[in-house]
Amino acid sequence: MELVFLGTGAGLPSKNRNVSAVAINMTQEINEVWLFDCGEATQHQILHTNLKPRKITKIFITHLHGDHIYGLPGLLSSRAFQSGENQPLSIYGPVGIKEFVETTLRISQTNLTYPIRIKEITKDGKLFDTKDMTVETKKLQHGIDSYGYRIKEKDKPGELLVDKLKQIGISPGPIYQQIKENEITKLENGTIVYRDDVVGSPKKGKIISILGDTRFSLEHIPFIKFSDILIHESTFTQEKELLAFEYNHSTNVQAAKLAKEANVKKLYLTHISSRYQAVDGETIIEEAREVFPNTWLANDFSVYKI
């Protein structure tokens, strides 16, 4: 899996940062891309990456401020012309996202060539569960309804113990994949092979928590606790803490405090105010690292392995 930051700015685009959008590229694992927020010109940003719009199967909107949704109609429309025909798409977001999408498509007379499903979020808890992933939501503290998303990858079977398989007379071949994918495999000679006997320890699934626009709150700790990755807004630097509170946002240091208290492994700061220039990046990251050393400042087109 990869994190691909498409837009890391707050409020309005700047020369260095477009507005909010981040993708989780899971094409190698489940042949899907999940997009979180879709600010203005997100489809333009995608053109500078290896992401394919037709691979985007789910779009998660944190809240309905323009810098998080204005790119959605354009992306939905373009996807129909980019080999997205008949590729279903699900959109999740606060109440109002359905009206926004349907109204913009209707007024622009846009006819999508693929089925679209829109689910509005009204409460905390499990959003959905698949064989590969579980996604949960939590309402945050912002001027309008804003939600965080916690993506939990299911644990995977360990690696096949090849030497052990060879010892019991099973040579390499397609049978290895069959053994790994099934709890019990019956060989042609009648031998029964139990997967648990020939695989190593399970691989722990990754946890990624993405918090949309929000004030700093210790109430968020249980939701993000033990995340491998936390993506948190960092609209302001520490000296602007009062301003951050007034505008329902967080500072870099507040995000770092939350990461530390929640025992997350790695923190990515995003949603940076346009008042900060590229030269301010060092200050933003250094302030946060004094509290939580494993902090990274996301930039547009940054790609990180998960």
Score class of each variant (00 low, 15 high):
K15F: 04
K15V: 07
K15A: 12
S20V: 12
A21K: 04
A21Q: 02
I24K: 00
N31R: 11
E32D: 10
E32A: 10
E32L: 07
W34S: 04
L35K: 02
L35Y: 06
F36A: 03
C38L: 08
G39Y: 03
E40V: 09
E40K: 11
A41I: 00
T42P: 02
Q43D: 10
H44F: 10
H44M: 05
Q45W: 06
I46A: 02
T49D: 06
L51D: 03
K52Q: 14
K55D: 15
I56L: 05
I56K: 00
I56P: 03
T57G: 11
T57C: 08
T57E: 09
K58L: 10
I59P: 06
F60P: 06
H63I: 00
L64C: 10
L64M: 13
L64T: 07
G66P: 01
D67F: 11
D67N: 12
H68Q: 10
I69N: 04
Y70M: 12
Y70L: 14
Y70W: 11
Y70D: 15
Y70F: 12
G71N: 05
P73A: 03
G74Q: 13
G74P: 02
L76H: 04
S77E: 10
S77F: 11
S78V: 01
S78R: 08
A80R: 05
A80C: 07
F81H: 13
Q82I: 08
S83M: 14
G84C: 10
G84A: 02
G84M: 01
G84S: 04
E85K: 14
N86M: 14
N86R: 13
N86I: 00
Q87S: 08
Q87C: 13
Q87F: 12
P88D: 11
P88T: 07
L89S: 01
L89Q: 01
S90D: 09
S90F: 09
Y92F: 15
Y92R: 05
Y92M: 05
G93A: 13
P94F: 07
V95M: 10
V95A: 05
G96S: 07
I97M: 04
E99A: 15
F100P: 05
F100K: 06
V101W: 03
V101F: 03
T103I: 12
T104E: 14
R106N: 12
R106L: 14
I107V: 14
T110F: 10
L112A: 05
L112T: 13
L112R: 03
T113Y: 03
T113R: 01
Y114L: 02
Y114A: 02
I116P: 00
I116K: 00
I116S: 00
R117A: 13
I118K: 01
I118E: 02
K119W: 02
K119P: 01
E120P: 09
E120F: 09
I121K: 05
I121N: 07
T122G: 08
K123M: 09
K123P: 06
K123R: 15
K123Q: 15
D124S: 05
D124F: 11
G125T: 11
G125P: 07
G125C: 07
D129G: 11
K131D: 11
M133Y: 15
T134R: 07
T137V: 15
K139L: 15
K139C: 09
L140R: 07
L140E: 09
Q141V: 05
